[in-house]
Design a protein around this nucleic acid. Sequence first.
DNA 1: TCAATATATCATCAATTAATGATATGTTAT
DNA 2: ATAACATATCATTAATTGATGATATATTGA
Lengths: 108, 108
Amino acid sequence: MKQKVDQFELKAKLFRGFGDVTRLSILESISEEEKTVTKISEELDQSQSNVSNHLSCLSECGLVKSRKDGKNRFYSIGDKRVVKLLKQGDDILSDIAEGIYSCVNYKK
Amino acid sequence: MKQKVDQFELKAKLFRGFGDVTRLSILESISEEEKTVTKISEELDQSQSNVSNHLSCLSECGLVKSRKDGKNRFYSIGDKRVVKLLKQGDDILSDIAEGIYSCVNYKK
DNA sequence: TCAATATATCATCAATTAATGATATGTTAT
DNA sequence: ATAACATATCATTAATTGATGATATATTGA
């Protein structure tokens, strides 16, 4: 049972990667094409450091990968299954969006 | 674009439902068979109020459903796709578990 | 009715975490 | 070499959120 809890801790941590608007937006933003930090921060209207922080977190976890090209570093999704998972989120959401929206326990 | 951000906000909120050990454990615990609050709190060794709080949150969002039977209320997963999504989490995790584990930005 | 059991609610506290701003590192072109 | 650009790092702050404990509500059986 202890092992299960540890497993769930990791799994929860995985899902938390998708559980923040900024991080999720980053993932969605690079799910089609690789992008630089600057490009992403412009698109999301978020500070460079914030995006960079999230990206380093996502990289460390293996959710995104990156390649360096001169001054730039291009980020992209590290595993196809991540994209698939995000798509499935949409699928569920299409049915329960209203409930999620009205959930007061979480702000945004 | 604004609409997309709103969409991502909901989606992030959805994933946050799975992004906490206690909530995730609750979902996993009732994914096979419906259970009462008391049963779940015993299993997870969590207080009744904590489990109940999470369940009301999960219910509101439509992630779990419940039926009342006398003094008891039995909770179960609200949508098959939720179980599927959780399973896919395992799938991804089997490959990137180490990265997730060593991610220092999040505690547990 | 009253006690026992099961669950819900809710304010408060403690812990977690996202964002900011400042600074550091690395790369390219002049 | 140095200015300009791109990214990373990190301490601090502000906001969010999970857990607790107390209490309220509901149901059943004696």
